[in-house]
């Protein structure tokens, strides 16, 4: 089983993407997608020595909904800052966010989430991978921003990945 399917999640993703590309739910398309989804992970398995570990996959749905809602809010917030705030009144700074999670997948998703959500962009990771450099567009209280990110996103990600 492990030799034929080194990455079951990758196989599933590739099949779904293939069916979406065809834009047609036919048996032939599904089968070809499944064949590609099995062959591609086999051919590239040496690039992916580790398999990402998901402890609670169902929590992903909740996380995606929270992030989608935050993206819509982020758009409105940033649009208002861009349109109505003069440049000299902007209080933008860098914030360091110490990371509790050790899982590389969780750190990647967290950095992406921070970039897509209100007023923050992740810019860099510390060389040992235990702190994130985040830039805030307009935040008078950097501690609050840091605690908000840790509670809202990192806690949920740690539940999913560890």
């Amino acid at each position: 089983m492990k030799r034929v399917l080194p990455h079951p999640l990758l196989t599933l993703t590739l099949t779904v993407v293939w069916v979406m590309l065809l834009n047609d739910l036919s048996l032939g398309g599904l089968l070809l997608g499944l064949i590609l989804g099995i062959l591609i992970p086999l051919g590239t398995r040496s690039f992916w020595p580790q398999r990402p570990r998901l402890r609670r996959p169902l929590k992903i749905v909740e996380y995606v909904l929270v992030v989608l809602w935050d993206i819509v809010v982020a758009n409105v917030v940033v649009a208002r800052i861009v349109l109505f705030k003069p440049n000299r009144k902007l209080e933008s700074h860098f914030v360091t966010i110490p990371l509790d999670t050790r899982s590389p997948e969780a750190i990647t998703v967290l950095a992406g989430t921070i970039t897509m959500t209100p007023g923050t962009v992740s810019a860099d990771l510390s060389a040992d991978g235990r702190a994130l450099l985040v830039h805030c567009l307009h935040e008078s209280d950097p501690e609050r921003a840091r605690d908000g990110i840790k509670q809202r996103y990192e806690a949920r990600l740690m539940e999913i990945f560890e």
Binding site: F94, T96, R102, P104, D124, S126, G129, A131, L133
Partner: peptide
């Protein structure tokens, strides 16, 4: 830039530590 709060700097400037156990890939 604010300090990392760690012994190592930001990844764009500092090389990743060589020693075992502090590299993100070998933490686990």
């Amino acid at each position: 830039l604010p300090p990392t709060g760690r012994r190592y700097g930001w990844a764009s400037f500092d090389a990743a530590p060589e020693s075992e156990g502090s590299n993100p890939d070998s933490v686990e």
